[in-house]
Simulated scan of single mutants.
Amino acid sequence: MQFDLTDLSLFRHVVEAGSITHGAERANLALAAASTRIRNMEKSLGAALLLRTRAGVTPTPAGRTLLQHSRTLLAGVERLREDLGSYTGGLTGQIRILSNTNALTEFLPEALSAFLAGHPQVSIDLEERLSDEIVGLIAEGVGDIGIVAGTVETGQLETYPFRSDRFVLVVPHDHVLAARPGISFTEVLEHDFVGLDRASALQRFLAGKASRTGKPIRLRVQLRSFDAVCRMVEAGVGLGIVPETTAHRAARTMAIGTVDLEDHWAARDLTLCIRSLKELPASARQLVEHLRKGA
């Protein structure tokens, strides 16, 4: 059995992505090369590592064992790289962050920009996920740092306050709802919406809330940013749900209004979650402290 670090990193990416194609992209390998490596790993081991279906791939019992050891070994290599980096001019390494939509779009760009400017040899892998997914993935060791809604149960993870915000309804300035001080999510489902791509964490969250009411979201346009949502709302295409910070910034230059959402989940206290601060690589520990300073 001969697995190198590229094999182990690829296998971890494939399992976490649930797809050899997407795992190869994350590992910066061609699909053919990635598939060959996986087959050679299974041949060397003499057992299947992945169950392949039309929906993607999942690890076999042998694959789960390999995944666990791969994460441990790769984390050790990352710590070694950082420790040696102290002899070559500073911290090095890659930090994996899993974040919900709100934190990713509203608070992380400036915070990460400031951190990376001071740590030029550190890179960050940032992925958008639902808050409840993030908790499980951080506990499993998939990411170093998670940023989740404060309402999510985080179990045994260490947590720290990050930021506070809330979601609001954005409407054209002359819309019939513009004069309302507040409204429930169920009531606004009677209207057309513009929103983020259906695969985004926030859009999946809202779709889940809508499904519980029996009224699906009538999504007219799918966009890639909250600012674009606000522009479409201004044009009268539909209503939008965005963070209050985004809405107030957009309202300075756009003819839009905001209405408070009365649902309890609209208020968003954002929380940092990690497995153990003392077990994080040095660069990740410094990033946690950097993010906490702005809380």
Rank of each mutant, 00 (worst) to 15 (best):
E78R: 14
D269I: 03
F3A: 05
E133M: 10
I138T: 05
I145N: 05
A17Q: 12
T258A: 10
F115V: 09
A114H: 07
R252I: 08
E140F: 03
S99P: 04
P172T: 11
A178D: 05
E82N: 06
A30S: 15
L272H: 04
I138N: 08
L287N: 00
P61V: 05
E110R: 11
V233E: 01
T159S: 14
V242L: 02
A117V: 07
S9D: 08
E106F: 04
R231M: 07
T88L: 15
G143R: 02
V194G: 08
S283A: 15
I95V: 14
L287Y: 00
K278N: 13
G118W: 04
H173C: 07
C273V: 15
M1I: 05
A34I: 09
V14S: 03
N28D: 15
A266D: 03
G257T: 01
L270V: 05
H175L: 03
S164W: 00
L223G: 07
R249W: 02
R275K: 15
P216K: 04
R79N: 10
R220A: 11
R163K: 15
S99H: 04
D174T: 11
D260Q: 14
A255M: 10
A199C: 02
V15N: 02
P59N: 10
P59A: 06
A149L: 13
G46E: 11
E78L: 12
